[in-house]
Design a protein around this nucleic acid. Structure first.
Lengths: 245, 245
DNA sequence: CGTGATTTTGAGCAGGATCAAAAAGTGTGG
DNA sequence: CCACACTTTTTGATCCTGCTCAAAATCACG
């Protein structure tokens, strides 16, 4: 892993030296770019030292400079509302991008914290803009990435607006499962990188309710939760629970 | 108004003939472009016949082709969740853009319906992309527009996740007030273009609750509601209610 | 007017919040 | 390695906001 080797360029895994050889490149910003375009993109991507658990990648109100691609580990993004309460707006796993919220006002509106040791690729946005003028498919990628964030946020809006505690938890568990599968990992068994508090905050529930729902799902044999480790025993059943009044 | 005159080019008001002279151009896509760039943008913008109340601008699943700027009237955007329930994701007023959700998957995810007679400017996205390659500040505008939609959705997420019925309603009333003010209209008195059902759906409340909150706010002398007409009597008080646990 | 849609009002209920405390896990220093 | 302090999670009891169901009132419009 680059994070364990010397300070080097980013978007690398093990002996990989560029986005071109990063095994996340089919999920990440380079998605569907031509080889030589990936090469150009790769040149502007910067390495960052790995973040320790609890460390901030950036904080709300800081000047916006870069997008960040998660390469390993996991982070959470959250905003502060007027009353100073935290609202978790998302969890981000390897291959996913954070920082898009900063483009609008040239300042980040979210704070992004590492939920566990995490390594990221920093992508200075000014250079993305410049490069996007020259590489139409990169411009399109950025447009699409932004748009996808919008549709995802709108799905969350619907979840918060319409669903019961059970549906919310089931939906989150499924989302994590799907995102693991995309990375060729088991969709049946994974670790929750976030605390119950974070889950509750994200889903608009108290931690007590989250805990009780986990208990109920376990009792019904749908999942097995042991501390942070989740095993999905009845995936189909969970799907039903997730999309059900 | 153009909508009452003959079929003509769009982004016009009365005798105006282009984005360059549209009085919404400081709110809309042309925002902060140079004059000649606005001229170029103006050339790709298309007129559409006005929509009648209830008519669709586009529907979910349709192929994505264009963004639309609201020029007059009001529209609502909504998605359908797995259970086929509607989730209103936003209300859009003159100077605001819809269609951004379609970029990600080349299909719209929302359906946009006119809440009252509305005229819109159609902006074919492929041409926006082409033009954005030539006009860096246009590219930036589009990036920022998309990002702003993200931060707005995230504010709604926080509202739905943390706030009481009263705060939600107060926040919506304030948001509408602010958006009227941006257009040099009175922030103290305006018409609600949407039904109580739409408000409830948007805010994650039942119509009964919306009605009761309106009643309470009126009783407290904060607002006066008469049918669709809202008068804000104590703006400061409403602000307090909106950002309060 | 009269019919159907929308909004308001009322009564009762319930899902999830709150408050409180126990249990389990985590980390630190001796 | 264990004792102790602290944090996180679980469990229990009670409460309350907003939902549900039902009906009345008001509005829109032919």
């Amino acid at each position: 892993m680059t994070q364990t080797t010397a300070p080097q360029n980013n978007c690398r895994h093990d002996t990989q030296t560029s986005c071109g050889t990063c095994r996340l490149n089919t999920l990440c910003l380079p998605l569907s770019l031509h080889l030589d375009d990936v090469e150009q993109l790769s040149r502007i991507v910067q390495r960052g030292r790995p973040l320790q658990k609890g460390e901030a990648l950036y904080r709300a109100e800081e000047r916006f400079t870069s997008l960040f691609a998660i390469r390993s580990g996991a982070v959470k993004a959250s905003t502060l509302n007027e009353q100073g309460e935290e609202q978790v707006t998302g969890f981000y796993l390897p291959g996913e991008l954070v920082g898009l919220d900063g483009i609008a006002g040239n300042r980040y509106t979210n704070t992004v914290l590492a939920l566990e040791t995490a390594s990221v690729c920093e992508i200075p946005f000014e250079q993305v803009e410049e490069l996007s003028l020259k590489i139409p498919s990169l411009q399109r990628n950025v447009f699409q990435l932004l748009s996808r964030e919008i549709t995802q946020d709108q799905q969350l809006i619907s979840l918060l607006s319409k669903s019961s505690a059970e549906e919310r938890v089931a939906t989150l568990l499924l989302s994590l499962s799907n995102r693991h599968q995309r990375r060729q990992l088991s969709p049946h068994r994974y670790n929750l990188p976030m605390s119950r508090t974070d889950i509750g905050n994200f889903l608009g529930l108290t931690i007590e309710t989250v805990s009780r729902v986990f208990g109920r799902l376990q009792q019904q044999g749908v999942i097995a939760v042991n501390r942070k480790e989740v095993t999905i025993l009845q995936l189909e059943r969970l799907r039903t629970l997730a999309s059900q009044r």
